[in-house]
């Protein structure tokens, strides 16, 4: 464990908690893409199956359980409890265009052709593009609530910190995982446009609005 991975995990946890609290407290999921949240629940489910097979540390196990629990709770709030506030008309990204290619690629490019490894690879590739429905929805509505931008900021920051963690681990431990690194770079690049808007607008107290 190094400081970059720890702050990355805490940034990820912060994002997940911010979103869950935003929906719970405002009793509304307006502006939130339910499709992205379903994809994240799929990411955690397929990646953390090793909860049943391997014990790494209390930290590792408890964080995985928290991530899975919060992501399913968020999906439940969006599609069940606060379904009336779900903005289905703007959450129209065709997720099959993400899941099918990612599924195919995880069979073609992986470290080991075993079920757990293919599911892990699928989850790594899926996480890289899981935010696209959310970013697409914001581009369609032309704006985002400030709390939603903070959620996206911490979510994008987490994988950027993981990139630094992988540099650190390669240098100090000779450890690297090319699949995770390439997917992590793609994932972080997808946030660059948002990061620019976040820094130039939200941090200056303005509302995030895109030229519609």
């Amino acid at each position: 464990m190094n400081i970059f991975r720890l702050t990355g995990d805490l940034s990820h946890l912060a994002a997940i908690i911010i979103l869950l609290l935003k929906i719970w407290k405002s009793r509304s999921c307006a502006g939130i893409s339910g499709k992205s949240q379903i994809l994240f629940a799929m990411v955690f489910t397929t990646r953390y199956l090793d909860l049943l097979t391997a014990y790494i540390s209390l930290y590792n196990t408890s964080m995985k359980i928290i991530y899975i629990g919060c992501s399913y709770a968020t999906v439940y709030l969006i599609y069940a409890k606060f379904k009336a506030t779900y903005d289905g008309n703007h959450d129209t990204f065709r997720v099959e265009f993400l899941v099918v290619p990612v599924g195919g690629l995880s069979f073609l490019v992986n470290h080991d052709f075993s079920p757990l490894e293919i599911l892990w690879t699928f989850s790594i590739y899926l996480e890289a593009v899981a935010i696209l429905p959310q970013l697409f929805m914001i581009s369609k509505t032309g704006e985002a609530e400030t709390i939603t931008t903070h959620y996206l900021f911490f979510l994008g920051l987490y994988r950027a910190l993981y990139l630094i963690n992988w540099v650190w681990r390669f240098y100090f431990e000779g450890f690297f995982d090319m699949i995770a690194i390439v997917a992590g770079v793609v994932q972080t690049i997808l946030y660059c446009d948002f990061f620019y808007l976040y820094v130039t607008k939200v941090l200056k107290g303005k509302k995030l609005s895109l030229p519609a």
Partner: peptide, 10 residues
């Protein structure tokens, strides 16, 4: 390239 596929990350 020393590649170890350790799954100790979240």
């Amino acid at each position: 390239w020393d590649h170890i596929n350790r799954k100790d990350e979240l």
